[in-house]
Design a protein around this nucleic acid. Structure first.
Length: 631
DNA sequence: CGACCCCTTG
């Protein structure tokens, strides 16, 4: 857990032994307090606690306070609870420190209950108790309780307290009642940068980009945190380019980015696939002494492999001094999606050997690796080990990996049987994976059955419909295919247009099917013609069956010839130095025909071509692809 | 005070 809590000793100055001379006369108390403060794990606390009891100090509120604080921070909330329950007359400070402890341990409801228990005993809360319970409300999204606490704040006359206002805003924001958050904000006499940052964050969490931008623009002196919140919000709301623009603007104004900022910017690079920019941010970090902590390391690893450079991701991974579960998860997923299945599994072994407990995300990565690598036995062994050895109950995504694994191998009946015996209901994605496998392996009968359940499953998205339509048309069922497309139209579901992009000289060039918008379109299409000509001479014939509309053959060839990835690659060929790697990012999957064409292009032009598609990476080199045509 | 990394299967 990374919840930051108040530095509690600082939050309760009257309890600091140094500051409170009057009530701090007992030398024994002083000793206990300093002994407790230096404890590094709970086992060191227990003998001290024993001595506290033996010497009759176990009801001393100062000592109990420190005990509760230390136990909470050492992840021993149960022990803290027990101590609390043995305290005869706990005061507001003891309640507060235990509420904080519950929050730190993720027991938000217990924290809220404890607060109510205190209120019911007529112990008056102060601003610290209130901010603590509000923090619990925020995590729990306990809007009702937050409103009740708000009433108490008004009754107690604490409503002008600055930190209370901040927390109230934050909780209302988290709960999505932005009018209430805004009202608290508007009532503040000074809407400073911190309050504004909370509002910006709240608006972004609910997709309100305009509103967030409005607040941001009204802040007179923006600090690093405020800029970072803005950049992060834009990234989360899909506005990568605006985020990067803002990052540049920030530097123009000499606001120094920190670890948090670079993590957000790296995340934008990851999503866009802008390796050059990502590398620049990386080198920038070196120049400005930004440390390679868990967050930065994870973001860098992620950026590099998502931008197609798995080797550099690996170098960062090895360079890190310490690695946590998330670091491993990032790297395992990267290896899996780059088709390096055995390395992904090896890394998983290394992780568990080091005593790091895998999470459910780890297994998504490992099982994806098995699925992409066609490793059925190992996949099932790991799948079964999840609950058995690691105490992690498989979720829909894990089941999905297994269905995909079986489907890719053509074990369609087994996949179908697997779905029917699952403990949970299949989702449209899983059924889609199986339908796609039925299509590839030519089992139309099962495909139809899956298709029917897909239609009935209710939450089908555009991808599902397209898949279904394609499945029908590939078996010549044009009427059914047309019906699916009509249904799509009727329900107002748009097909996501295929789009490929390539970064050249720090600029992103985007292409859609048959795109004519690029200023160098003539040269691009000339290159495309040239490539097509060479490919024809090489004896390459377009596989028309993958364009699945009921159109004439020449039209099919034409439609294929201008898939967006081809345009992006051709632009790469004319705008980058010979023999350099071309990296393209596509939002959908690469079709069969483009896949074989890119293989040939890599051979003819002696270029390495890395394509990131919707679900994995393809490294084309000298006529072959790293996916082994299995994707 | 307020902001950060891993999340699958079509």
């Amino acid at each position: 857990m990374t919840h930051s809590t108040l530095p509690i000793a600082a939050a309760y100055p009257s309890f600091s032994p140094k500051l409170d001379s009057k009530s701090n006369t007992s030398p024994k108390r002083k000793t206990f307090l300093s002994q407790l403060q230096s404890c590094k794990n709970i086992n060191q606390v227990i003998p001290i606690h024993a001595k506290i009891i033996r010497t009759n100090h176990d009801q001393d509120p100062f000592i109990v306070f420190e005990l509760l604080r230390v136990c909470s921070n050492l992840k021993s909330i149960d022990y803290a609870s027990k101590i609390f329950s043995c305290t005869q007359q706990p005061n507001v400070y003891l309640y507060t420190v235990l509420i904080d402890g519950f929050v730190l341990s993720g027991y938000y409801i217990d924290g809220i209950h404890l607060y109510y228990q205190m209120i019911n005993l007529s112990i008056l809360p102060d601003n610290y108790a209130i901010t603590s319970v509000l923090k619990a409300c925020g995590y729990q999204l306990a809007l009702q309780e937050c409103r009740e606490v708000h009433c108490q704040i008004l009754k107690l006359g604490l409503s002008s307290n600055r930190s209370i206002r901040m927390k109230l805003m934050e909780v209302y924001g988290k709960c999505g009642v932005l009018e209430d958050a805004k009202q608290v904000f508007d009532e503040m006499p000074e809407q400073d940068v911190v309050a504004s940052t909370i509002m910006i964050n709240s608006f972004f969490h609910h997709g309100l980009i305009q509103e967030a931008t409005g607040i941001f623009n009204s802040v007179k002196t923006k600090d690093t945190v405020c800029w970072t919140a803005m950049i992060d919000g834009l990234v989360r709301n899909g506005e990568m380019n605006l985020a990067l623009e803002l990052f540049r603007e920030m530097q123009r104004l000499n606001v120094r980015p920190n670890e948090f900022t670079v993590v957000c910017v790296l995340s934008a690079c990851s999503r866009l696939g802008t390796l050059e920019l990502g590398r620049w941010v990386h080198s920038y970090m070196g120049r400005y002494g930004i440390e390679l902590n868990h967050f930065v390391g994870g973001a860098l690893i992620n950026m590099y492999w998502r931008c197609g450079d798995i080797d550099e991701a690996w170098r960062i991974f090895e360079e890190m001094k310490e690695r946590n579960v998330i670091t491993y998860n990032s790297m395992i997923m990267g290896l899996a999606l780059h088709g390096k299945s055995s390395q992904a599994i090896e890394l998983f072994r290394r992780m568990t050997k080091q005593g790091l407990a895998p999470t459910s995300v780890t297994f998504v990565g490992v099982l994806s690796a098995c699925s992409h690598g066609g490793l059925a036995d190992l996949g099932f062994e790991i799948f079964h080990s999840m609950a058995r050895y690691y105490g992690i109950e498989p979720q829909i995504e894990h089941y999905g990996c297994m269905v995909d694994l079986l489907g890719r191998l053509g074990m369609l009946k087994e996949a179908y049987h697997f779905i029917r015996t699952m403990k949970i209901a299949p989702d449209h994605v899983m059924l889609g994976a199986l339908l796609s496998a039925c299509k590839i392996h030519g089992n139309l009968e099962l495909g139809e059955e899956i298709a029917k359940s897909l239609v009935n499953c209710g939450n089908a998205d555009s991808g599902t419909y397209v898949l279904l339509s394609n499945a029908y048309s590939s078996s010549g069922k044009w009427k059914e295919a047309a019906q699916v497309r009509a249904k799509m139209k009727g329900e107002g579901i748009e097909k996501e247009p295929g789009c490929s992009s390539i970064e050249v000289n720090n600029e992103i060039h985007e292409f859609i099917l048959g795109d004519l918008r690029h200023p160098q379109k003539e040269e691009i299409y000339k290159k495309l013609e040239e490539m097509n000509e060479i490919l024809r001479l090489e004896g390459y014939t377009p596989a028309t069956e993958v364009v699945l509309h009921d159109i004439e053959k020449w039209q099919k060839e034409w439609a294929l010839a201008i898939h967006s990835e081809r345009l992006a690659i051709c632009y790469g060929l004319i705008s980058t130095k010979p023999f350099t790697t071309i990296r393209v990012v596509k939002n959908l999957r690469v079709c069969d025909d483009c896949h074989s064409m890119i293989k040939l292009i890599s051979k003819i032009t002696k270029r390495k071509i890395v394509v990131r598609d919707r679900n994995r990476f393809h490294h084309f080199e000298n006529g072959t692809c790293s996916c082994g045509d299995y994707w």
